[in-house]
Amino acid sequence: GLEHMADEEKLPPGWEKRMERSSGRVYYFNHITNASQWERPSG
Rank of each mutant, 00 (worst) to 15 (best):
A35I: 14
P41D: 01
N34G: 14
N30A: 01
A6L: 13
M5Q: 11
R25Q: 07
P12M: 03
N34L: 13
F29M: 03
M5I: 13
G14C: 07
E3V: 13
Y27T: 01
G43I: 13
P41F: 01
P13V: 08
I32E: 09
A35E: 13
S36Y: 09
G43Q: 13
A35S: 11
A6Q: 14
S23E: 05
N30G: 00
A35Q: 14
S36M: 14
E8C: 12
S22M: 06
E20W: 07
P13G: 06
F29W: 07
H31K: 13
K17G: 02
T33Y: 06
S36V: 14
Q37P: 00
H4N: 10
A35F: 10
L11D: 07
M19S: 10
E8H: 09
R40S: 07
L2F: 14
M19E: 12
R21Q: 15
L11R: 01
S22G: 15
S42Q: 13
T33R: 04
S22Q: 15
Q37D: 02
G14T: 02
P13Q: 08
E8A: 09
E16Q: 05
P13L: 09
L2M: 11
N30S: 05
L2S: 12
K17N: 01
W38V: 06
K10G: 12
E9G: 09
E9N: 08
E39L: 07
Q37V: 06
I32W: 09
M19G: 03
P12V: 02
E8D: 13
S22D: 15
R21K: 15
N34F: 09
E8N: 10
S23G: 05
T33G: 02
S36F: 11
H31R: 13
P13S: 07
H4W: 12
E3C: 15
E20I: 13
P41E: 00
M19W: 15
R40G: 02
E39F: 06
E16M: 03
E9A: 10
H31V: 14
G43S: 12
L11T: 02
W15R: 00
S22V: 15
Y28H: 01
E8T: 10
R21D: 15
E3D: 10
S22E: 15
P41A: 00
A35G: 06
Y27E: 02
Y28E: 00
E20V: 08
W38Q: 05
E16P: 00
P12W: 02
W15K: 00
P12S: 03
Y28W: 06
Y28N: 00
W15T: 00
E20A: 06
G24D: 04
S42D: 11
Y27C: 06
K10E: 14
G43M: 12
L2W: 15
M19D: 05
K17A: 06
G43H: 13
E20Y: 09
M5E: 13
M19A: 09
E3A: 11
N34C: 01
R40K: 11
G24V: 02
P41W: 00
T33K: 05
P12G: 04
A35D: 07
S42N: 13
N30H: 04
G14R: 02
G43C: 09
E16R: 03
E20F: 08
G24F: 04
S36N: 04
E20N: 06
D7K: 08
G24E: 05
R18A: 04
M5R: 06
P41V: 01
L11I: 04
P41H: 00
P13M: 08
I32T: 08
W38R: 05
E3G: 12
Y27N: 00
P12Y: 02
E16V: 05
K17Y: 04
I32F: 11
S36T: 14
M19Y: 15
L2Q: 13
G14M: 05
P41L: 01
G1L: 10
E20G: 04
H4D: 13
M5Y: 11
G14Q: 05
A6Y: 12
E9H: 08
K10Y: 11
E39P: 06
G1R: 12
E8V: 09
E8M: 08
A6T: 12
F29I: 04
Q37F: 03
S22N: 15
E39I: 07
R40D: 04
G24Q: 09
S42H: 10
E20D: 15
A6R: 11
R21F: 15
H31E: 07
E39W: 09
G24C: 14
K10P: 14
G43E: 12
G1C: 13
E20Q: 12
N34D: 05
R21P: 15
R18Y: 08
S23T: 14
Y27F: 06
M5F: 11
S42E: 08
E9T: 08
Y27H: 01
D7H: 09
E16S: 05
E3P: 12
E8S: 10
V26Y: 15
L2R: 07
E3R: 03
S42T: 14
E16H: 05
R25M: 07
P13R: 08
K10T: 11
K17L: 08
K10H: 10
H4M: 12
K10M: 11
S36W: 14
P41T: 01
D7T: 10
G14W: 09
P12L: 03
E39D: 10
S23Q: 04
F29V: 05
L2C: 08
W15N: 00
K17M: 07
E8K: 09
E9C: 07
H4A: 13
H4F: 10
T33F: 05
R18N: 03
Y28R: 01
I32M: 09
G43T: 10
S42A: 10
S23I: 02
E9F: 08
A35V: 15
H31F: 13
Q37L: 05
R40H: 08
S42K: 10
E16D: 03
T33E: 04
D7W: 09
V26S: 06
G24A: 04
S23V: 03
T33Q: 04
S36D: 02
L11S: 01
S23R: 03
E3W: 05
P12A: 04
E39G: 06
G1Y: 10
S42C: 06
W38E: 06
T33W: 05
